[in-house]
Design a protein around this nucleic acid. Structure first.
Length: 201
DNA sequence: GTACAGATTGAG
DNA sequence: TCAATCTGTACT
């Protein structure tokens, strides 16, 4: 995979679908980041969907708007990153259409290219600990506030669709949202069955 | 201006 | 099991 090549990628039309649809259908796809002549790539193996206004685990529950989450009310296909615990970056793709603030949270990746860069950034050689968590893979891929608002259909960061997906999808409740009253048990976490690269629990 | 929670991680 | 670490948000 060359740094400057044109890659087939998921389009605006795809990201205007629902969070459940996108969350399930990007499993097995590749995520590619190309910056500073470096190419990093991996297979998406775990996602969660957040349904927005009706979802009390979502940052935009009941139509709440803040400077931080405003972008989730915009068009699908843009990136929403936020800092958590003062040190980690969480990565989301805004999906659906304007004024419907649904998001897809990417929780884990299987590393494919740029593995030595990832090892250096993470400070470990263990390939299973580079990208098996929502803030671990962002660290490996160098995702930070500079990605906020980026268009995921352009060239810096993009999703490459894969045709042949020979795996089963496991669907469970989401991680770390027990504070949600109604939505905490909604089955909106999706992962590739038997993948060695999903987050623990 | 102050207070405080947090879609996690890593050490113990 | 539990503290790190600091921004965004809500409050005075």
């Amino acid at each position: 995979m060359a740094v400057n090549s044109t890659l087939k990628r998921r389009s605006r039309i795809f990201f205007r679908k629902s969070a459940e649809y996108v969350g399930k259908n990007i499993l097995g796809d590749l995520i590619v980041v190309r910056r500073n002549k470096k190419l990093l790539a991996g297979k998406i193996v775990e996602t969660e969907s957040y349904l927005g206004i009706k979802d009390d685990a979502s940052h935009s529950f009941q139509g709440k708007v803040t400077p931080r989450n405003k972008i989730t009310y915009g068009d699908g296909g843009f990136i929403y990153v936020y800092l958590i615990y003062g040190k980690y970056w969480c990565f989301n793709i805004v999906v659906s259409k304007e004024n419907d603030p649904q998001t897809v949270f990417i929780r884990a990746i299987e590393p494919l290219e740029g593995i030595n860069v990832m090892r250096k950034r993470r400070g470990t050689d263990d390939i299973h600990k580079l990208t098996n968590g929502p803030c671990r893979w962002t660290q490996s891929f160098g995702i930070d506030r500079s990605f906020f608002g980026k268009d995921i259909t352009l060239n810096t960061i993009l999703i490459v669709p894969q045709k042949h997906k020979n795996f089963e999808i496991v669907q469970t409740k989401r991680v770390g949202v027990d504070y949600a009253r109604n939505a905490k048990n909604w089955p909106l976490r999706f992962y590739v069955k038997d993948s060695l690269f999903i987050s623990k629990r």
